[in-house]
Design a protein around this nucleic acid. Sequence first.
DNA 1: GTTGAAAGCAGGAGGGT
DNA 2: ACCCTCCTGCTTTCAAC
Lengths: 164, 164
Amino acid sequence: MRKSRCSARSPYDFQVELDAVDWKILDLLQQDGRMSYTALGRVVSLSAPAVTERVRRLEALGVITGFVAVVSPARLGLPIESIVRVRVRSLDTPRFRSHVLALPQIRDADHVTGDDCWLLRVVCRSMVELEELVEVMQRYGDTTTSLVFSSHVRNRPVEAALFD
Amino acid sequence: MRKSRCSARSPYDFQVELDAVDWKILDLLQQDGRMSYTALGRVVSLSAPAVTERVRRLEALGVITGFVAVVSPARLGLPIESIVRVRVRSLDTPRFRSHVLALPQIRDADHVTGDDCWLLRVVCRSMVELEELVEVMQRYGDTTTSLVFSSHVRNRPVEAALFD
DNA sequence: GTTGAAAGCAGGAGGGT
DNA sequence: ACCCTCCTGCTTTCAAC
């Protein structure tokens, strides 16, 4: 019944095959990361040790990379969220990575193709704080800043439907 | 010892004050969302029921919005990650929201200020699939697509240091 | 905030298919 | 390879303080 097979033998051979039970477990844990193995087992009709072993394997394979509490920056006094695109000059990239990417206000930083080579998601307390942050970033290249009105999707679970 | 005060009485009165113990708990749970209340209690020198009550309060206040397993799309066969900026024509916005934002490939969708009014993080299996997705989005407005080389920061924990 | 008892859960051993 | 049951020790939860 189980045909899960791992082909992740090197960094360039990543992909993992999951069966329906693995997908259901992933689905549940992406909605409630604290669900007990016993409760998971009740849903997928498996014993707790069997579920535990599957979750351990999903972690070992790098499918599950961790379990985290999701926190609202706005509720903690960081109501300003923005996306800053930075066109970092190549000579400045090492300093940009060590000085800018380490700032606690940066929640996501992606190196991307295209003219704006870095894309940063920044949270801060005020527009004044954002202004200061953007001024720092401008030491490394040109910036384009957009304020986030609202986030309609955040970290949507990865689901089996993606493979239909 | 505890001076946590909540001022979140309306949607426009969001902010919550946390004490050092709350911050430590948040810190630990953002690193390991499955940590037991007993283990949290050992770190912060509190009994398990006291920790449980604090975590429940943080959830009730909207500071903690959930606990989730973090999943690697690449390991599941979605190696292409990209950021698509979409300049949606205002008349097309309702259909864009219902048709595009619901696609399972969309992991983040933010409505932002500036010319490119929507910012989408898309994962897919191949460039061909990305091409198809972008063609769908182009029915609602102009797009700019950047491929993600690498993500250097992803969902950095919100930490007390942000308030120094 | 605490303790303490009852119920439920996790994780290992051992065995079955 | 995959799963089960049993057993022991922890963890959670609720009540009482």
